[in-house]
Simulated assay, not measured.
Amino acid sequence: MLKHFEMFADYNRWANGLLYAAAATLNDADYRRDTGAFFGSLHATLNHLLSADRIWMKRFTGTGTAPTTLDSILYDDLPSLTEARRTEDRRIVDWIGGLEETALSGTFSYTPITAPTEITQPLAPALAHVFNHQTHHRGQCHTILTTLGKPSLGLDLVYFLRSEGTRWM
């Protein structure tokens, strides 16, 4: 199971790279345009993804900074957000790469932002959630990009496995 999560961390890094490269082709007005997505704009959605990852990584590791809201705008410009995304993706890859298989069956405790009640749960399903959450919102970002007239992105896991991710096959 650990290799599975290591692959998803690597895939997540790769897919985010493609998404951010596509975002960089937008002018600032389109990047910030409210297209009706859950967080409105591509700018807000990308900030949400980074916010959520920082929240989860703080829960998992007890280290790092984490915003106190899910709609935090951590970075107001795309270049700074891109650099922070790369750093967070590397942090995720490195952290999962340092886990022992037995850690996946262990539990951790945290207090959600949305409800002040401590929750204890197994690590493995929470990790699955983190990667599923990324995929969910990358899909929203993809829709925003195509709504703005940009080409569709090939973000499927199989495309990663056929390119940078061949080591996972």
Rank of each mutant, 00 (worst) to 15 (best):
N27Q: 09
R59A: 07
M7D: 08
G149D: 04
L123C: 05
L70I: 12
L99E: 00
N27C: 09
I119A: 06
H142E: 12
A44E: 14
V93S: 07
E118W: 09
D89I: 03
W14Y: 02
N132V: 10
L19F: 06
G62L: 07
H136Y: 14
D10R: 05
E88K: 11
S80Y: 09
P67L: 02
E88Q: 14
G165F: 05
E6H: 15
L127H: 00
D94C: 10
L155V: 10
E88S: 15
L127N: 04
A84L: 03
K58R: 15
T25G: 01
H129Q: 09
Q140M: 08
P79T: 04
R33C: 02
S41P: 03
R54G: 07
N12L: 05
I113T: 04
V158D: 11
L42Q: 02
T147M: 08
P116I: 01
Y20W: 02
F38N: 07
S41H: 04
P112C: 03
N132Q: 11
L145N: 05
N16G: 04
Y31M: 00
H136W: 11
H43I: 01
R86N: 15
E164R: 12
M7W: 05
S41D: 03
T25W: 02
A115K: 14
L148F: 02
N47K: 01
A23E: 00
K3R: 15
L104I: 00
Y75S: 09
N16C: 02
Q140H: 07
I92A: 04
S152T: 15
L99C: 07
D71C: 02
T111V: 10
V158R: 10
L70C: 10
A9S: 05
N12H: 11
G139H: 06
T68I: 12
L127D: 00
Y11F: 09
A126M: 12
P116N: 08
T63D: 15
L46A: 06
L2P: 00
S152Y: 12
G97D: 03
F39K: 00
Q134G: 14
A84M: 08
T117G: 07
A84G: 00
Y75D: 08
S80M: 03
A52L: 07
F8Y: 14
E6Q: 15
I92D: 05
R86V: 15
L70N: 12
V158Q: 14
D28K: 05
S72G: 11
I144G: 02
S163Q: 13
G149Q: 07
M7L: 15
A128R: 13
L49I: 11
P112V: 01
I55R: 03
T87W: 11
G98W: 01
N16Q: 09
T63S: 15
K58P: 09
R162C: 05
D28C: 07
G64C: 06
W95K: 08
F38K: 09
I144A: 03
F8H: 13
R32L: 06
A29M: 09
F108K: 04
L26I: 04
D71I: 04
M7G: 11
N132C: 10
L157M: 13
C141G: 11
H4G: 14
Y31T: 00
E100F: 10
A37N: 06
E83Y: 07
G40C: 06
V158H: 10
S152W: 14
R167G: 08
T61R: 08
D94I: 03
F38L: 06
L46S: 08
E164S: 14
D77L: 00
E101H: 12
T63L: 14
H4I: 13
H142M: 08
L99N: 02
